[in-house]
Amino acid sequence: MRSDAQQNRERVLAAARAEFTAHGAGASLNKVAQRAGVGAGTLYRHFPSAQALLVAIIAEDVAALCAHGRGLLGDPDPVRAVHTWLRAVAVHATAMRGLVATESLAGAGSTLADCHDEISAVGAALLDRAGSPDRVDDVLTVVNAIAWASERAPGEPGRLDRLLGLVTRGLRLG
């Protein structure tokens, strides 16, 4: 991809993230193009639909989350690495909840399933390294529930970390 095309794609993704965060499923693709400083044709060349745009945002965020997790595999303290990564997963879940909840992702199954598989693989590697026999899917389900519960209590800024501490202690890591 040419550098100017790559820059346009990145601007569109940043603008779309802001629009979808602000307006959810009702975000206007025309406003995304305006915010990105590109024409509608450029937006549709890169992303032929709102669904394609949402999937690209999610895939980009999952790639960053998983890269962070793979980096934590080198942390000398595997228990701290698990806790750090699970916190990042919870923050990601909170940020993505509004995007994934849109009805326009109904046909994005395989791409979103690939994202889930990637998160699960990184989580399993971190949990294995920390000596936890627990199933990664169960842990990720609990972390998503913690993220949701923390969102519901904005007046308790330490709630996320307190709940994650319960999980990591409950895993009997180490």
Rank of each mutant, 00 (worst) to 15 (best):
S104V: 13
V38R: 10
G170T: 10
A149M: 04
T168I: 07
A153F: 03
S3V: 07
A125T: 03
C115G: 15
N8I: 06
A145W: 00
V91S: 06
N30G: 15
T102D: 05
M1D: 02
S28C: 05
L72S: 05
R162W: 04
G71A: 15
P76M: 09
R159T: 02
R152M: 14
L72K: 07
L86W: 00
R35C: 07
Y44V: 09
I58Q: 10
E10D: 08
G98R: 07
T42S: 14
N8D: 08
A56W: 01
L160P: 03
G123C: 08
L105Q: 13
V100Q: 09
R11H: 13
A59H: 05
A153W: 00
E118L: 11
L53Y: 00
L126Y: 04
T102A: 15
G109H: 08
L166D: 12
G71S: 14
A147W: 00
R9V: 02
L127C: 15
L13N: 10
G26M: 02
A145T: 08
A153K: 07
A40K: 13
S110W: 02
L160V: 04
N8H: 08
G26S: 11
A50K: 13
R17M: 08
S49A: 12
I119H: 03
G71R: 11
V167F: 02
V122R: 08
M1R: 05
G24I: 11
L29F: 02
P78S: 11
A113N: 11
A149N: 06
Q7K: 15
T141H: 06
A147M: 05
E60W: 03
A81Q: 08
A147L: 02
D117P: 04
G98K: 07
D134H: 03
G98A: 07
E156M: 03
L166W: 08
V32R: 04
A93Y: 00
S150F: 02
A101I: 06
T168W: 00
G26Q: 13
L163M: 13
S104M: 15
V38Q: 08
G155T: 11
A15F: 01
Q6E: 05
I119W: 00
A33E: 00
A14G: 12
T168C: 08
E103M: 09
A121D: 00
D128M: 04
I119R: 13
R169F: 04
A27N: 00
M1G: 08
I57P: 01
A88W: 04
V143A: 08
H116S: 15
D137A: 15
A22S: 11
A88G: 10
R17V: 10
R169K: 12
P157Y: 02
M96N: 13
A16V: 06
N8V: 03
L112D: 02
I58F: 12
I146L: 08
S3Q: 08
T94W: 01
G39C: 05
P76Y: 01
L171I: 06
W85R: 14
R97G: 12
N30Q: 12
H23N: 15
A153S: 10
G155I: 03
H46D: 07
L173T: 04
G41F: 02
G26N: 06
Y44K: 13
D137K: 06
G107R: 09
